[in-house]
Amino acid sequence: MTAVGSRSTASLRHRLAERGVDVSLLFLLPALLLIVGLFVYPFSYGIGLTFQPSALVQERWGGGVLANYVAFFSDPFVFDSVGITMRLALPAALFNVLASVPVALVLRRKFRGKRLVTSILVLPITLGTVLTAQGLLIFAGRQGWLNRFLLEAGIVDEPLRLVNNYTGVMFSLIITGFPFAFLLISSYLSGIDPSLDAAARTLGAGWWQRFRRVTLPLLAPGLATTFILTFVLAFSVFPSARLVGDAMGETRVMSLMAFRAFGEQNDYQMASTIALMMGVIELGVVALVLLWRSLLYKGSTGGKG
């Protein structure tokens, strides 16, 4: 470090390098170009589009340049999709996170066949949404194996409606989202020093107290992060909402509405508006969760504090 006033004898290159400016920064260039070309520019363009409503929208909803937004909030057919998406994404994300915790806790121990169980739990991550949807239709559809079995066993009188509705999409979101949440939570859990649990035991804490007072508080920031990621995944649900859902009814999610505006009505401007609002709502939820997370202990979870 150089005191103010005295002149450094180091060369300019050295002084820049000390502040982290050197040739290696050029490695950032390809990524920056991609981000600007494929994200920043199209995104700004999209925002611009939302303020250029089509004549039709302007005429119907009024509001001048803001007509698309007026339409978004005033057209119940469009606006209701916000609630529909929330009703899918929130419970799905919550379930994926909460169900992962006990599973990850059990799989933290050593036992025979642990690797197999882990593999089976993680496997669905390799299936695409479309494959999952296909499988669900075959397995749980009206003519699917499950319903045929239930009918023939006399357990039900008529086939259960498990797909082409809310339940179908929820299944799909859990099948694809759970392995993801489980993997993340497992890695957060493995970051917690096992000797903390041993210490709590010697101090007289039973398993629930150890979980409640030690593991959970240390895991909570990880739970928040996992919730955010699975929520974002579930919120932008599109293929399964269409394939195993009820695209114009119960599972009329926002991405479907955006697609409809773009594909069926040729209204790029409205589609951009819906897409943008999706982003805004996701950001809102993320911000809330991060706010809660900021109240938690986030330091080291190792043994030496």
Partner: peptide, 20 residues
């Protein structure tokens, strides 16, 4: 007896203090 019922105090090499 399980560890939590023995009432012995233990000091760990890694200290194992609850960081939070």
């Amino acid at each position: 007896l399980p560890s939590e019922k023995r009432g012995f105090g233990m000091v760990f090499q890694s200290y194992a203090l609850f960081p939070h």
